[in-house]
Amino acid sequence: MNPPVEILPAASSAAGPFDLLMLALLLLSTLMAVALALMVIGFSIRFRAGSRAERPGPVRHRRAIEYAWTGIPLLLFCAIYAWAAYDYAQLFRPPAGAMPVFVVAKQWMWKLEHRNGRREIGELHVPLGQPVRLVMTSQDVIHSFFVPAFRLKQDVVPGRYTTLAFTATKLGRFHLFCAEYCGTEHSLMRGEIVVMRPAEFEQWLQQGADTPGIAARGFALYRRYGCSGCHEPGSSVHAPSLAHLVGRTVHLQDGRTLVADENYVRDSILLPRKDIVAGYGPDMPSFAGQISEEDLLAIIAYIREKPDER
């Protein structure tokens, strides 16, 4: 007997909660629509022309009814908003051991790179049951990373990084689309997510490990562009330490504090005068136009894993 055909399978950890939320919204909307329709039909029949129904004058003060029709929908709206906000926030809170994948979108393809340096175009291989964290940017225009079976959609924007976390829960191949019109060949910007058993994924991943890992490539770029000449302990230039930078709280010259993430590191390289660290001068030169998006991601991967300074 052939297995049933799934039109849109729920293939990620996000799919179940979002499907449940959508079902709740559908049921609530249906309930309200049916209730209003029945009231319209009932009043139309009862107060039709020629009926003997009593028609007293309008009642101008029914505070309880006014509070009810205002308060109950408001409470329902707030409850649904909190529910949806919680589920949405989980997409950006990956577990500590989530597998990083770096994504660069361009007209009209998806370019992806794993931590060990294995690269893909138009396909993303991931292990079943293991959390994955995507760090995404665009090389040209706005794109949108859309996987219907995973119930995931995230804009990919030039000039900044967006992130997305998921855990695949079904084996197979699932469609990847660009859901933002991005030019003449937008409809051809398609791909696939390939979900594999963990052991098979590790074997597949190691087949492309002959190239240096992304962090190793980032270290080479870090030295090539002269970053080590200022940010290492023995340098003659007074510059902030980069050890354990990503995730660390940074105090800025103007009194603000922020938690360093990929966007902060990117801005520090391309727009160094935007957020100057407290106790340091605006001496960092801008590398805008000199470093490609893929090389920026490699440098950030190295800084994320940068060991303690001796």
Score class of each variant (00 low, 15 high):
Phe47His: 09
Pro3Ser: 04
Val156Leu: 07
Tyr88Val: 05
Asp155Trp: 03
Ala35Thr: 12
Glu6Met: 14
Thr137Ile: 09
Arg190Thr: 13
Met189Trp: 06
Val40Phe: 01
Gly226Glu: 15
Thr249Ile: 09
Met189Gln: 11
Glu293Thr: 05
Pro272Glu: 15
Arg197Thr: 06
Gly122Thr: 01
Arg55Met: 13
Phe145Asp: 02
Gln206Leu: 11
Gly183Ala: 09
Met1Val: 12
Ser292Pro: 00
Val135Gln: 03
Phe92Ile: 12
Glu202Tyr: 00
Pro285Trp: 12
Ala168Thr: 10
Arg273Met: 09
Arg133Thr: 06
Pro148His: 01
Leu26Gln: 13
Val277Phe: 14
Trp83His: 13
Cys230Arg: 10
Ala79Val: 15
Asp295Pro: 01
Met99Asn: 01
Pro307Phe: 12
Ala24Ile: 05
Met109Arg: 15
Glu305Trp: 04
Arg151Lys: 08
Ile269Trp: 04
Pro198Lys: 02
Ala301Met: 11
Thr30Tyr: 07
Leu164Pro: 07
Pro9Thr: 08
Gly97Asp: 15
Ile193Arg: 00
Lys111Ser: 07
Glu262Asp: 15
Arg115Leu: 09
Ser228Met: 10
Asn2Trp: 10
Thr184Ala: 09
Pro4Ile: 15
Tyr86Pro: 01
Asp140Arg: 03
Glu66Asp: 10
Val147Ala: 09
Leu76Phe: 11
Ile300Tyr: 00
Gly289Leu: 08
Leu297Ser: 13
Ala215Trp: 07
Cys227Val: 10
Glu293His: 08
Ala37Ile: 02
Val195Phe: 03
Ala98Tyr: 05
Pro198Phe: 03
Gly57Tyr: 13
Leu23Ile: 14
Arg46Leu: 07
Ala15Arg: 00
Leu112His: 02
Pro127Val: 13
Ala298His: 06
Thr167Leu: 05
Ile121Arg: 13
Ile299Asn: 09
Arg266Gly: 02
Arg62Gly: 03
Tyr225Val: 15
Arg224His: 12
Trp83Ser: 10
Val132Arg: 02
Ala260Met: 07
Arg256Cys: 06
Glu294Phe: 06
Pro56Lys: 13
Ala199Tyr: 00
Pro58Gln: 03
Phe287Asn: 06
Leu297Pro: 05
Glu66Phe: 12
Met196Ala: 00
Phe174Glu: 10
Gly71Leu: 15
Leu171Thr: 14
Tyr225Lys: 04
Glu113Arg: 02
Gly117Ser: 03
Met189Val: 06
Pro240Asn: 05
Phe47Thr: 04
Phe92Tyr: 15
Leu188Thr: 09
Ile193Gln: 00
Pro131Ser: 13
Pro73Asn: 09
Leu221Lys: 05
Asp254Val: 04
Arg52Tyr: 08
Ala33Pro: 11
Glu305Leu: 11
Cys182Tyr: 10
Ala68Asn: 05
Gly42Ile: 04
Leu171Trp: 13
Arg52Met: 10
Ala165Thr: 11
Tyr86His: 11
Arg248Glu: 14
Phe145Arg: 00
Arg93Met: 08
Pro198Ile: 03
Gly191Asn: 01
Leu271Ile: 09
Pro95Phe: 13
Val157Gly: 01
Gly183Pro: 08
His114Pro: 01
Thr70Tyr: 07
Arg256Tyr: 07
Gly229Arg: 14
Leu128Trp: 04
Val34Met: 14
Ala82Pro: 04
Phe201Cys: 00
Ser241Phe: 00
Glu192Ile: 05
His175Gln: 11
Ala85His: 15
Thr30Ser: 15
Pro100Glu: 01
Ala82Gln: 14
Gly16Gln: 14
Ala79Pro: 05
Arg119Ala: 02
Ile269Cys: 02
Leu271Tyr: 15
Val195Ala: 03
Gly57Asn: 11
Ala220His: 09
Arg62His: 08
Ala243Pro: 04
